[in-house]
């Protein structure tokens, strides 16, 4: 049951990290509005393979908006035009027959391109390794209901923890700042009683690693919050600034 949308795609092709890249035009035909954006890429890739050309490399995995792997910059917006969704949840019904769609990789110094639309986001893992955790070894825990946590705090913490680490916030920021990502983790833990012990070190170490990785500063444009597929709130950045400020005073 293929459809009847015809589109022109302009897609960033780059053979490797060191090679120069360029936008290449591909017409696609017979697209169904029920397809996801990535399924439309499957159709194009199948065509390319059949023609003896190399398919387009892009990161993707769960295709239900939770793993954070997919990362396309579509017509100037990370994850495309629809609010609150990842690229894999974007459906072709969000476009019109005859549209031209430009697809680029995330662009940030800290996210080097590996190939085509695939970028290296390992910087995020390195930031988490500096403090995005509570130091509790397996087996050390007390009964889970021993520390009551107010529902409102638990909910706020959860909202911050919903970050999928896709990097859309960095890609959309004119400074390539990772503040929304880092602040989401710092907030999640700062809001919980379990997170208090390491609060100071966490804020300082994670921010230091963020700077080390070459992410830019935050100038409060708020673009990250607008483009975040999980709608992580800008309030987290305010909370992180407070955490960082307090950490510096206390030491």
């Amino acid at each position: 049951m293929s459809g009847n949308m015809n589109l022109t795609l302009r897609i960033w092709r780059q053979k490797s990290a060191k090679a120069n890249g360029q936008l290449v035009t591909y017409p696609v035909k017979g697209i169904s509005p029920d397809m996801s954006f990535l399924e439309m890429f499957d159709v194009l890739n199948e065509e390319l393979i059949n023609k003896g050309e190399e398919p387009i490399a892009f990161d993707h995995d769960c295709r239900e908006g939770i793993c954070g792997a997919c990362s396309m910059f579509i017509n100037g917006q990370p994850h495309g035009p629809k609010k609150g969704v990842t690229t894999c949840q974007l459906h072709m019904r969000s476009f019109k027959d005859g549209d031209t769609i430009v697809v680029e990789p995330w662009r940030a110094a800290a996210f080097p391109v590996i190939k085509d639309l695939t970028v290296d986001r390992a910087a995020f893992d390195r930031i988490i390794a500096k403090g995005g955790f509570i130091s509790v070894n397996t087996g050390n825990a007390q009964d889970a209901n021993n520390i009551p946590i107010p529902k409102t705090d638990a909910d706020l913490s959860f909202n911050a923890a919903a970050c999928i680490g896709c990097g859309a916030c960095v890609a959309t920021c004119k400074n390539s700042s990772a503040m929304l990502f880092v602040s989401a983790k710092i907030s999640q833990l700062a809001l919980l009683p379990q997170g208090q012990v390491e609060r100071i070190a966490r804020a300082k170490n994670m921010v230091a690693q963020m700077d080390e990785e070459g992410f830019g500063s935050c100038t409060n444009t708020g673009a990250c919050e607008v483009e975040c597929p999980k709608e992580i709130s800008l309030e987290n950045i305010a909370r992180m600034n407070r955490e960082y400020f307090m950490a510096n005073i206390k030491e």
Partner: peptide, 22 residues
Amino acid sequence: ANIIDQCVAQGVPLAREYGGML
């Protein structure tokens, strides 16, 4: 039961009731 204890200690924000219990 140990798993729930471990996860809560790690800061996993499991759903809670208004009284603060899981």
